[in-house]
Each structure stands twice: as structure tokens, then as C-alpha cells.
């Protein structure tokens, strides 16, 4: 009985994780411009990753494998949003601006100095 319950939980977690991963990829292809694609990527980064790893954790039971899965989860949980932020920030600094929705005016960021002009690599 308990085994069937666990198998059911694993099934639901893995399948929904796979679903969200594919949704994120579809969004990356379908969205019209860079700024909206960032959000699609973050769907598979958060929901797909968390659900798939949780499913594998439940499947593996209590063992060293679970610990490794949790470590991978923690690493992705911290680095995923950080790299998304890094990409978005680099795009903003390079002068790419998101198109605003109807009737909205975006906040203009502080004028940033041209990084290529002010820095000299060693």
C-alpha cells in the first residue's frame, strides 16, 4: 500500500516536472523577444528542476543519493536565479530595453557608463 502511494507520488512529481520543463522550452521558442524569453527559461529553471529532483528524491528513498540530489537542488536553487539575473543585467547594461506593454512607461535605469570605455584589461 505504502509502496503504491510512493510510486504514485513519484509518478506525479516526475511527470509534472517533465511537463514544466517542456513548457519552459516551448516558451523560450515561442516568446517574441529576449525579455519575455527570460521568464520562460525561469519556468523550467524553478518548477521543472524542483519537481524532477523531488521526484528522484522520493524514488531513491533515504540514502546518500538523496543527499546528492539535495545538494544539486541547493546549487541549482541558488545559481539558477543568479545567472538569470546576470544575463538580464548584462542585456540592460548593453542597452537592450524591454518593449513596454500598452499604456505603461518603464522606469529608466540610471545612465550607466560604457564599460568598454572606462575599463582597461590588465
Amino acid at each position: 500500500m505504502a509502496e503504491m502511494l510512493i510510486a504514485g507520488i513519484v509518478w506525479v512529481l516526475i511527470v509534472s516536472g517533465a511537463f514544466f520543463t517542456v513548457i519552459g522550452a516551448i516558451g523560450i521558442v515561442r516568446f517574441p523577444d529576449f525579455w519575455s524569453r527570460l521568464h520562460a527559461a525561469s519556468v523550467s529553471d524553478s518548477a521543472g528542476m524542483i519537481l524532477l529532483l523531488a521526484g528522484m528524491c522520493v524514488f531513491a528513498g533515504w540514502s546518500l543519493i538523496t543527499v546528492k540530489l539535495i545538494v544539486i537542488g541547493v546549487v541549482l536553487f541558488i545559481t539558477g536565479p543568479t545567472s538569470t539575473h546576470a544575463v538580464a543585467n548584462a542585456a540592460l547594461v548593453s542597452g537592450l530595453r524591454p518593449p513596454e506593454g500598452k499604456g505603461l512607461t518603464g522606469t529608466e535605469p540610471e545612465p550607466l557608463p560604457d564599460p568598454a570605455a572606462e575599463t582597461t584589461p590588465i
Binding site: R30, F31, P32, S42, P98, E100
Partner: peptide
């Protein structure tokens, strides 16, 4: 995260994607 994911999934799957982008402080 679960709620927000569901919202974005609906936006991705909608035939005419209801995108309304905004940059705010």
C-alpha cells in the same frame, strides 16, 4: 513559485500570448 509558475504557463500556452511587459522599481 507554484502559483507564479501556473500563471506563466497559462501565458505561454495561450494562443495569443497576453504579454504586457513592464520595468518598474
Amino acid at each position: 513559485i507554484a502559483k507564479a509558475n501556473w500563471n506563466v504557463t497559462k501565458v505561454i500556452l495561450a494562443p495569443r500570448m497576453p504579454i504586457r511587459q513592464h520595468l518598474f522599481a
